[in-house]
Simulated scan of single mutants.
Amino acid sequence: MTSESLRIRPFHQVDVFSAQPYRGNPLAVVVDAEGLSSEAMQHFAHWTNLSETTFLLPPTDPRADYRVRIFTGSEEFPFAGHPTLGSAHTWLQAGGEPKTDGVLVQECGAGLVRVKHDAGRLAFAAPPLTRFEPVDADVRSQLTAGLRLPEDSLLDASWLVNGPEWVGVLLESAEQVLAIEPDLVAMGDLKVGVIGPHEPGSDVDFEVRTFIPGDAMVEDPVTGSFNAGAAQWLIGSGRAPEEYVAAQGTALGRAGRIHVKAGGGDIWVGGASVTCIQGTVLL
């Protein structure tokens, strides 16, 4: 990208899965990304130093309201959850009007994703799992080593691939989830999400933590794609009710809340979003 191609573009930074600013998962959104190359998008996403940066574009599919491209600091994702909700929130805030009242259709690398209003929040329809099967013995051993847990504490472990290649691990309790002190070297290149139930009567139903490999393994504050896969897994197996709330980010001092609801043949994954920074960017 040469200096002659630079121009001022609208830019938002949004906190997703939290109604409290700075307690969820931040997302950078370039509102008008027309004319940017993939290389320029990747370079800017690396520069923001956030887990994801998105770029809003006109749709190429006539059924869609807008198109989004989703980048981490090192690669492009076909789909991700908190970027979907944060991008939809930003598109609406920037004056976007959906073709169908009350429902947005987002075009992304994984196809078309529906987003709707639900109890004052936005929620996306969980995309289908493209790989859904129990992990093999070698991966299970790697998980127990990486999570520093005895083998019999893993109630279940399955591939939950819906873009990102998640491995889901179910533990007996939220306390076990929060007590994990992972061995990041032993975790290797696995993207691991761990979930366990809270005691009945708690403010939330499940506790979630996710660990993502990269230059250094990091714990993600709140992860929509993993929660979408976990909801399909747990509701489908009868381990979770058709409507529940999960907490994530507790171990990092965040207050992420993921609202899950099954209905009409879909599982909807929702959360609040709040714009924390709004302005322009030279790009």
Rank of each mutant, 00 (worst) to 15 (best):
L27F: 03
G73E: 02
F206W: 14
T100V: 15
G238Y: 05
P200D: 09
A262M: 04
P127G: 08
L155D: 14
A179H: 11
E219I: 10
G193P: 08
F77E: 09
D15Y: 09
G270S: 07
V14W: 00
Q106P: 01
A145Q: 10
A119V: 10
H46M: 06
H12V: 15
E107P: 00
A174N: 08
I70L: 05
M187H: 04
T53Q: 04
V113E: 01
D183I: 13
S202N: 06
V115K: 01
D138Q: 15
H12I: 10
T90M: 03
V222I: 10
F79C: 02
S225C: 10
L57I: 09
L149R: 10
W91I: 04
D32A: 04
D156T: 10
A33L: 03
R254M: 03
P221A: 12
D61T: 12
G253F: 11
R69E: 04
W159M: 10
A80H: 05
A251Q: 05
I70A: 03
L190H: 15
T280R: 13
Q93N: 12
Q278Y: 10
K116Q: 15
V274E: 10
Q106F: 02
E199A: 14
E39V: 13
G86T: 08
A125G: 12
E76Y: 11
S237W: 02
A125H: 06
K116S: 12
G271L: 03
V30H: 00
T53V: 05
R9H: 13
G146M: 08
A64G: 05
P59E: 12
P213G: 12
N162L: 14
H259C: 05
G236N: 01
E34G: 08
A45G: 04
I180C: 02
F211P: 01
V167W: 03
E97H: 14
M187N: 03
G163S: 11
L104N: 00
V204W: 04
C276S: 07
Y244V: 04
S153R: 15
A157G: 14
A126F: 09
E207K: 08
P150K: 13
T60D: 13
K99C: 08
W233P: 00
A137R: 14
L50C: 07
Q106V: 04
G168F: 05
P150E: 15
A255C: 11
Q42A: 13
L178V: 08
Q142M: 13
V14I: 15
V169I: 06
D138V: 15
A94M: 13
F77S: 06
E151D: 15
I212P: 00
E172H: 13
V105Q: 08
S38H: 13
V204R: 07
V245P: 00
V281F: 06
G196Y: 00
T130M: 06
M1W: 09
D183H: 11
V185C: 12
A123I: 05
L27V: 06
Y22Q: 12
E181W: 08
